[in-house]
Design a binder for these strands. Structure first.
Lengths: 215, 215, 215, 215
DNA sequence: AATGAATGAGAGTTCATTCAT
DNA sequence: GATGAATGAACTCTCATTCAT
């Protein structure tokens, strides 16, 4: 948890710090990210960071938390706008579309998401991933239940499996267009959201039988 | 490519260096892994590493290549020993079992695999992931075709989707038991291979419909 | 340019650092000069140097600039004190005397001047020589014009040639007494300023005809 | 002195070593030049260098000696071809032209000459400069006497001064076109030999009165 | 005579963190 | 509360030289 100083901080400054941190950690990850760079970019004194956060790890955790929350809130909003009167698979495809668009539009959030997924240090990742996962789950579980209640999901489908699968797929779609070696097969790397759509559609369609009852 | 010196090296020493490198990189990843530590563990002079590899990145790439090759060879061997006279899903479950056992038995290979997956630096990851992925593909594609020829895979299944999915699942199964935040749902974390079996069986079963033709 | 930290620094410490740097660079030149040695001599932490200068080259450039400025300022002062009511050649001889005395009294400045002249790396030398040369020119050009106006310099003398020649001679006189192989003919090596005088007088007298109008 | 092994060496190999050394030392100077690079370029074992020369300094000294000798021999040849039936200054201008052309055509010799002039370490420079200077003197002194005997040199000119001056001018002309900060006035930097001619002619003409008797 | 692996000191540079002001 | 100078350990990498083969 950040110190009380942090929360009492001038909003502009807090934004500058958060912005700089998302950029730095998003680009270089936790251990390679430099507090020097963050302080310089945010135009604050190096020492000030330690008035706000007890150490680098806490700082990184806070940045990840904050990012997860933003992503989750915005995604809930966007998902709420999707058409529920269509087959589940089409709806899920739409979800992946807005997800892909969101990360195209938000490079900072994308970077931090990548940093979260790419962190190798177990004690660091344990903290940041846990928070992120909670956010994912709080979005994914309810909507799955909703669709199950609508009878659009196979009766024999295992909820935990579906959730686990979505937890694999979503980061994949978010990062594959921007990082090498994530998707060597479908061709998402380097594509704009519009260009990604055929591959995403294909991917989700292929996974369809896991979710949908046979017609 | 390592220098010719490396290949002319005394076998014991080469093993010591490779072992130490797998340990260090596997534990801390590329950028946080320390050549100092590797040299100390391998009981060679710091400078000697640079007789074998031109720089850290080449060294890391070599360690990853070597590891991928080992994993692939051993897995091909183990997969070849599995019973083909069973339903595809049961066979795939068996594959995941031996996969899970392999990484339980080989902490070094597991660590390097993690380092490969967790590397955030794009230019580094591009190189090491590419090699790893080639190995995966050379195993996965042929066996999928084999099963398709046996009529055990849905005619309408999209090959690339199946491959992409397997490329997501395999690292997941390999790493989930040993790293926090990978599997928050199925409970693989901290389990022995035998204890992992129910969760793996459940997971693979849930994915079954995209592979198997409806009966 | 040094960082703002450098200029805010305690004067004693700044002097210690500059002194140590002039000594080290003056003795060993840019590439062989060691920041370790400088930090040790100045009694600061190695890392502190990088609070003051962004890298070694900038540090060296600063030391050279500073030295050029000092040399120039002091020489202007000393030259201003010379008798203008004498033939040009005698005045020029006096200039060379004070020049020779200055470098005898200032081993640090002499060393840095040598380092500037002896630097082989083109990109480094380009920077440090350029600054030094500007200082030389700002002293040399005006005094030549002064003497020309007094009618003591041949009307047909080519200004640029005279300047180029002085730019060759001054470093020669400064360094010849202290470095082997610079002056194998006139015997300046190893002499005190007083002992250098006959050779300097001889040398300047020999060059006289290009300056002085025939009488 | 190189070992007897060196002189017994296969001519091709000796040439390769000398060529590589001239390149490396000529580009980076003595202390920054790397024996590793030389051995690699010459395609010999690193250790072999130490069969030929007792250490780096002796090696460098040998390379400089050899270069000085080559320069001197070739320059004697070229100077011998110049027209003696012209005024001294025109002849000296011609000498500077062939000198300038020689170094344009011989980048290796030019590099080593620069390395000789730019070496800051006194014990190293003492050795290499001394040899170079002897070569210069053996060319310069006799021709000056020749011209003096022809009555083309002022009777009151001081031989040692003329020699010293030439020892300053010749390296200046050789290096000014290729190194920054050597000639900030006449504009030799970056020019081809033909383009250098006007500046050289101007320079030598300007120095003329030092040498020639008034007409 | 030639090789080339081994060495370890030393290079410049970065870094998270501390703490006096 | 903010500052920013100071720290020193750690980093990757280079080097001339040695010596067993």
């Amino acid at each position: 948890m950040p110190t009380s100083t942090w929360f009492r901080l001038d909003v502009d400054k807090r934004d500058r710090v958060l912005h700089a941190a998302m950029r730095e950690f998003g680009e270089h990850g936790y251990s390679t990210g430099s507090l020097n760079n963050i302080a310089r970019d945010a135009e604050i004194a190096k020492g000030s960071l330690f008035q706000y956060f007890s150490d680098k790890q806490e700082f990184f955790a806070y940045v990840c938390d904050e990012t997860s929350r933003r992503v989750r809130e915005e995604m809930e909003r966007r998902i709420a706008g999707l058409d529920l009167d269509q087959p589940f698979i089409d709806w899920l495809t739409d979800v992946c579309f807005v997800w892909s668009e969101y990360f195209a539009e938000h490079p900072l959030e994308r970077g931090v998401t990548a940093a979260t997924n790419f962190e190798i240090d177990n004690s660091v990742r344990a903290v940041v991933r846990d928070t992120a996962v909670q956010h994912y789950l709080q979005v994914v579980r309810p909507v799955l239940h909703l669709w199950r209640d609508k009878g659009e999901i196979r009766a024999d489908a295992d909820d935990d499996v579906l959730v686990s699968l979505l937890l694999l797929i979503l980061p994949f779609i978010a990062m594959a267009p921007y990082y090498d070696g994530i998707d060597p097969v479908l061709g998402l790397r380097g594509r704009t959201p519009v260009e990604q759509r055929p591959a995403i559609r294909r991917f989700v369609a292929g996974l369809g039988p896991i979710f949908e009852p046979p017609r």
